[in-house]
């Protein structure tokens, strides 16, 4: 397998040859990796933005690169959009619609906020959910915006990057564990790791402790891991599917008549998958936020 360079110019060259009828030069894999993977430049129609780079920081044997990348940039865009929507809607609701429901976009956001407050936070966390509602809401709207950015023309989805989803999952992990620690106390929290099932006697206590402790410990780590992988895999898979279907046009680009049939079918399929992806963008954001609430609730009600 060949490591593909991510440089934009090279990709453009490949596309040009594909459009020029030399389909054997078109590499679908390269096209996919180019659109899905992170990059250090951002392609707009007509020009390529080479993002400003900085030298990686070496910190205790780890090399950390804070340079702006495509996904970092998109994440910042998503954050700005989320902020703008949140602040504008909050302003609309708290200034003008305290007594009556707002209409239009603010109402749509409000419906989601109410749903998350009542069904996700209150339903899963229960008593004391108010402290977690902002966290769950921020998770949902931030992830949703990032997911939807992937469906925009010239966009891309930061949630299709494992680093982003892993970081979000790690945040959830710490929120779950730290809030659990404060709620249960040191002894209560320790029991969520060193677990002895009630009703065991004598030597069986030790046996169960030895068996259950790794299980409990793993279950704590599996939850955020599953969160990260689920979101990442769903977003990546959807985009792979879309680009693969579009790529078929170029794969069949040198066939006289077939290419039109393929192009038509590809167009129809892509549109259908795009619709599905719109749904998936919402569903995955919802699942991430909802499962976070579930994990927080499980931890809060551990006895």
């Amino acid at each position: 397998m060949r490591f593909l360079p991510l440089a934009g110019q090279e990709h453009e060259a490949v596309q040009e040859t594909a459009e020029g009828g030399h389909a054997e030069a078109f590499d679908l894999g390269e096209m996919l990796s180019h659109h899905i993977l992170n990059a250090r430049e951002y392609e707009f129609p007509g020009f390529v933005w080479h993002m400003p780079q900085m030298d990686p920081i070496h910190l205790g044997g780890m090399t950390i690169d804070f340079s702006l990348t495509k996904h970092t940039f998109l994440m910042l865009v998503a954050a700005v959009i989320t902020l703008a929507i949140g602040l504008v809607v909050a302003r609309t609701i708290s200034r003008r619609h305290v007594t009556a429901a707002p209409s239009g976009f603010a109402n749509a956001v409000e419906a989601m906020v109410v749903f998350f407050r009542d069904d996700v936070c209150k339903g899963n966390i229960g008593h004391g959910y108010e402290r977690f509602a902002p966290f769950i809401l921020t998770l949902f709207f931030f992830i949703l915006t990032m997911n939807l950015l992937g469906l925009m023309p010239w966009g891309g989805t930061p949630t299709g990057n494992i680093s982003v989803t892993a970081a979000l999952a790690i945040i959830t992990f710490f929120v779950v564990e730290i809030s659990g620690f404060f709620k249960l106390g040191a002894a209560g929290y320790a029991r969520t790791i060193f677990f002895v099932p009630p009703g065991t006697e004598g030597v069986w206590k030790l046996v169960m402790l030895l068996v259950m402790t790794p299980v409990e410990f793993l279950s704590k780590l599996t939850k955020p891991f599953a969160l990260a992988i689920r979101l990442f895999a769903n977003m990546t898979a959807g985009h792979m599917l879309i680009f693969s279907l579009l790529g078929l046009i170029f794969v069949f680009g040198n066939m006289a008549y077939t290419r039109w049939v393929v192009a038509g079918a590809s167009f129809a399929m892509t549109t259908a998958i795009m619709m599905l992806e719109l749904l998936v963008a919402f569903i995955q954001a919802y699942i991430f936020a909802m499962l976070s609430a579930v994990f927080i609730g499980l931890m809060q009600h551990e006895h």
Binding site: N38, P56, M62, T63, I64, D65, F66, S67, T69, H71, T72, M75, P158, N161, I162, S163, V164, A166, A167, L168, I170, I171
Partner: peptide, 11 residues
């Protein structure tokens, strides 16, 4: 691959 820089950005 895990990009620690991007993770910190995300956080």
């Amino acid at each position: 691959s895990v990009d620690v820089g991007l993770m910190i950005w995300t956080v």
